[in-house]
């Protein structure tokens, strides 16, 4: 099995609250992984630790065999990991097209000073906007889009950076069922093209239908993992979710 995103004993505490508690997790590279757990179980903090948004207190994170612990977020992105946020985050005062062009990573001073919005970048951006279905809005200011459209824009922005692994934090949160279906279809398509997904999600129907591998968190640590059907009937998971 190819090594993808892995953590060893990853720990992060906020004061007396241990949000991520010695979490050792290995995600399946090339698959759709789901990270589930009750509210407050440390899923988003885990995401933030892995992507460099916050510094873990101890433990390690590695991606494709390379240590990424305490690595700056832009370097994690450069290593091939893209992410979305729990509360949809876009650049509100930029146009839809600019939201995507901001994800272009120029190499060298010359490329940095080259005009943004070159034909190749714009074509690529249009391609992603078309894939997510909002290409007709490319000239609109992002803040004028509906919440669902903003979710799609956020996903298109992540894709524009061409990540190999995509971490989605509640992609179905607050969106209508039709849009959930569209997002699920996109994830399947992109996964078929070779991209790995790690999805934090509360919509169990979506998790069960979409994922190949499920990791369940409770109180900051994984309590179960495996194929969706196995995890669903795991007594530890039932106890964490239902208290039975």
């Amino acid at each position: 099995m190819t090594a993808g995103l892995e953590t060893r004993e990853l720990t992060k505490a906020f004061g007396g609250v241990v949000a991520v508690d010695h979490a050792t997790v290995s995600f399946r590279h090339g698959k759709v992984n789901a990270l589930i757990g009750p509210n407050g179980s440390g899923k988003t903090t885990f995401f933030n630790c892995v992507t460099g948004m916050i510094r873990p207190d101890s433990g390690t994170a590695s991606y494709r065999g390379k240590d990424i612990t305490r690595t700056a977020p832009h370097r994690v992105a450069a290593a091939g990991i893209g992410r979305s946020f729990q509360l949809c985050r876009i650049f509100p005062r930029m146009t839809v097209m600019e939201n995507l062009l901001a994800a272009v990573r120029p190499q060298g001073i010359g490329a940095l000073l080259r005009r943004s919005g070159g034909a190749a970048d714009v074509e690529r951006a249009r391609g992603w906007l078309h894939r997510v279905g909002i290409d007709h809005l490319e000239a609109a200011e992002a803040r004028d889009l509906s919440y669902g459209q903003q979710k799609l824009l956020e996903l298109a922005g992540v894709l524009m950076a061409e990540p190999e692994t995509i971490m989605l934090d509640e992609p179905a949160g607050g969106v209508n069922p039709a849009l959930i279906d569209r997002i699920a279809a996109l994830v399947r398509e992109l996964n078929a093209e070779g991209r790995t997904f790690i999805v934090v999600e509360h919509n169990m129907e979506l998790v069960m239908s979409l994922s190949d591998h499920v990791v369940v968190f409770d109180r900051g640590r994984p309590i179960a993992e495996g194929p969706p059907a196995d995890v669903q009937s795991d007594p530890a998971v039932l106890e964490a979710y239902l208290g039975v």
Binding site: I90, F91, L101, A103, P106
Partner: peptide, 22 residues
């Protein structure tokens, strides 16, 4: 007009998001 400028404007809009995009 530059890509550098686009990065700076992304910082103005949402610095954490800009970092996450690389």
């Amino acid at each position: 007009r530059s890509r550098f400028g686009m990065g700076l404007k992304a910082i103005r809009e949402d610095e954490d998001k800009a970092q996450a995009l690389g």
